[in-house]
Structures are given as structure tokens and as C-alpha cells.
Nucleic acid binder design. Sequence first.
DNA 1: CGTGGAGTTGAGTAACTTCAAGGATCGTGG
DNA 2: CCACGATCCTTGAAGTTACTCAACTCCACG
Lengths: 231, 231
Amino acid sequence: MDILEIESTIQRFAIFAQLDRQAIADVARSSKPRCILRGQAAFDQGEQANAIFLVLNGRFKAIQMDPDGSQIVTRLAGAGDLIGHLSAFNETPYPVTAVAILDGEILAWGRRTFVDLLLRHPQLSLALIRYMGLSIEEAHKRLHEATNEHVERRIAHAILRLVRQGGRPVEGGIEIPFPITRQDIGLMSGTTLQTVSRTLSAWQKNGIVDGGRQHLVLRDPHAIVAIAEEQ
Amino acid sequence: MDILEIESTIQRFAIFAQLDRQAIADVARSSKPRCILRGQAAFDQGEQANAIFLVLNGRFKAIQMDPDGSQIVTRLAGAGDLIGHLSAFNETPYPVTAVAILDGEILAWGRRTFVDLLLRHPQLSLALIRYMGLSIEEAHKRLHEATNEHVERRIAHAILRLVRQGGRPVEGGIEIPFPITRQDIGLMSGTTLQTVSRTLSAWQKNGIVDGGRQHLVLRDPHAIVAIAEEQ
DNA sequence: CGTGGAGTTGAGTAACTTCAAGGATCGTGG
DNA sequence: CCACGATCCTTGAAGTTACTCAACTCCACG
């Protein structure tokens, strides 16, 4: 991807949309593009956070692991999402490992470089603040779900999140167009892969979803919304 | 509180610490101080977010409530903490109700006013970005705990958070110097007041904690850390 | 002195997890 | 092209944690 492509790509993303031509050029010029193959990590949990990344395309999952081995998926990131921004500015280690679940391209900035961009372009800071505000609200919503809702509802929420982050309409439903395992869904909804499997099997019997290995299609999205919202 | 007091107070808070004299004056001048009595709310969930607040003193709890009545406490806020910042910049409704659990003073800025401050003082934006990054990490940590740890451990974590946010050393332990109910602790650790009561009763028998109605003293903080970290 | 918020404690139970074992699907190398 | 290993998925049965329901006590405050 050359610099002009980068400019025209990033100016479409919410975080950069308010910047003028010159600012976009400044931002683009100081970035380094990088390809990440499926299965590779953009960075690893615990590593010193020297860079911040923007996803240009592809799909990443952020996995957080405890010393005792337990994990959760804190978020998925697609085109236009930042990753690594939490720790980069506080100079703390990355709190998650960001694994590509599809081949993809990202843009990297050094920590110091990005801080300078923020100081030079207040509109960029403001956009980042808005972006992070939404992340916190999302995290709190998940926390609420995790502590007050039963599994089936949590799984429904997790799947609706997948849809919002990149569901593709196909004939007879909505497809999740990237590989996702029962394990992943479990880590996103706070349950085990077995429970996810049982739940999806039941839904499949009712014609609500469809799909096989690492693949999911919502046949009746409305039914899933209903499950997510039932008392 | 007059303007000079405000200036000298806020410059000690992390979010404003990097600002020069002039910037501090600018920030202070555009703020409106306000007193909140115990039990009152600085703002209510669902209300249009027209203002952002800084806690000068006192203590607030942020409660999030579902349509079905279930609640969680997303955070406690003390001197130096911002409240209302999540939604104010995105012009979404407040996602929580911020209730004072002690009489306190806060500083208020209108949404537009604070955005202008951010645009005028890039260092303020940067500090806010750092602050929000820490909030997200904290939320993700709680999410991890909520889904992978058993109640006793979660309660221990919740209490350690209380200590970090304002524990006061007293003879024979550490005191939580603001009123906190079993219900609150339950809402902070994702369990019921009954389970909290049982757990604290057991701990009290072992001499780990002490306290009565809305009151808590850690007699053996080390033991609580051990519980929070045991496998 | 009465009322309501806060806390305690017991018993029963539901919802998930854990353990277990087998089946399906993918990719890879002979 | 087929065999094999690795990953992913399914389903059953047993076990457990912590929630729910319920009754009772204690205090603070008007």
C-alpha cells in the first residue's frame, strides 16, 4: 500500500474523519504499514508497548490470559479499529495478545510518534477520546451482562456483536465472514466451548442459526435479538 | 471554593498535572463548582450528557441499571476522578447514575466548554487519553475476573479495589473510610448481598476483616491479597 | 417506640461446569 | 490421492457453586 492509498483509506475511518488534508498526510507519512498473516500476533501480552496500530483490513482478536491460564477475548478489531492504544500512552505492557484471524494489513506508529501526532492535531485527540469512551461503555455493558445474564443470553449478545462488527447479508440470513470457533464465542461470552456448542446445536434445531466448523450463519437474526433481550 | 483554591487543587490531580499555570487558569475559570449531598446524584442514567465533572472531594458510586432492574456498580470515584466523560464527548446519554456516598464537591464543565479546552490544550487531551486507557484496562480486568474467578476471589478483588481507592491505615488494619453496604460490594463483584454477607462473616471468624453496618476494616490485608490471588 | 434499611443464616435448587469419550473436518506430507 | 495428526465440535453424565426464597435480627433515626 503506497502513501496515497493509505491517506484515502484512513480518512474514511471515524478516528481520522475530522482531520484536514494536511493532517491526514502528516499522520499517514509517519506510519509504517505491515502485513500480518492469519495466526500471527501483532503484539503479545506482557510485551513493552512501543507501538500503536490501526487495522486497515483483516480481523484481529484481543486475547487476555491470566497467570493461571484462563483467558477471555476482550474484543475483536476490524478495519478502522485501533489496537495497542490502551497501554501505549501509559507506557505499560500490552494487556492482551492481538492475533490475526484473517490475513490483514495494519499501520504502525511508534509510541512517541503517535503522541506527537496527538499534540499536533487536537482533533485527532478528540476523536481518540470519543473512540475510547465508546470502548469503556462497551466494556461496562459486557460486565453487566456477564454478572446479570444467563449463558444463553450472553451467547446471543456475543453473536450480535460479531454481526455488528462485520456481519455480511447473504441469501437466507447473515453470515459471519471470518473464522470463529465455539471456543472464541465462549471466551467472548464468559462460558465454556461445550456450553456454546450445546446452545448453538439447540438453535440450529430451531432453524435460528446454521454453520459448521469455524463458520456461522444467522438464519433468523430476529430470534437472536429476542433471546438477547428476553427477561 | 474560590478560583485560586480550585487552581491549586486541580493541578495536583494527574489529569491536570502536565498543564502550565495559564492552562490551569483557563481550565479552572471555565468550571462551575457544585456541592452534592450524600445520597444525591450528580447525574442520572439516561439523561442527556451535557456536562462533565471532576470530583474534588467526597466519594461517588456509578450505578448502571438494566431495563429489567438488575444493576452493577461500574466504579467508585474519588478526588481527582472524572465522571460523565464517557458519554459527554459522544453526545450519548449518561450510561450510569453517579450517586454521592459522602457529601462532596465537584467541578462541572459544559460539554462544549470542555471540548474547547481539549482542543486548546493538547496536553489535557493526552492526559485524558491516558486516564481513559487505564479505565479500559481496569474494566477488562474486571471482566476477566467476573468470568473466570469464583465469588470469594471476586469479593477479595472488590475489597482490594476499595482499599486502593481510599483505604486509610488505622491501628490494627486498614479502614474503608466511606459507607459501603454488602449490597454495594455485591454489585461490584458480581454476586448477591447474601453471598457477600456469608463470605465476610466467614472472614470475620478468621480475623481477616471486621466491621458492621456500612463499615469495613481489613484486619489482615495480606490474607485478602492471598485469597484474591490463589489459584 | 416504631419503621425501614442493613445484615445474618438456613435449606433447597437451578444452571453451568467439569470430566469424558467419540466424531467430523482440515491441511499436510508421503 | 490418501493417510494421518491436529483442531474443532458434539453429546452424555455427574458434580458443584452460588443463587433464590425465606425468616429473623439488629440498629439508626425520626
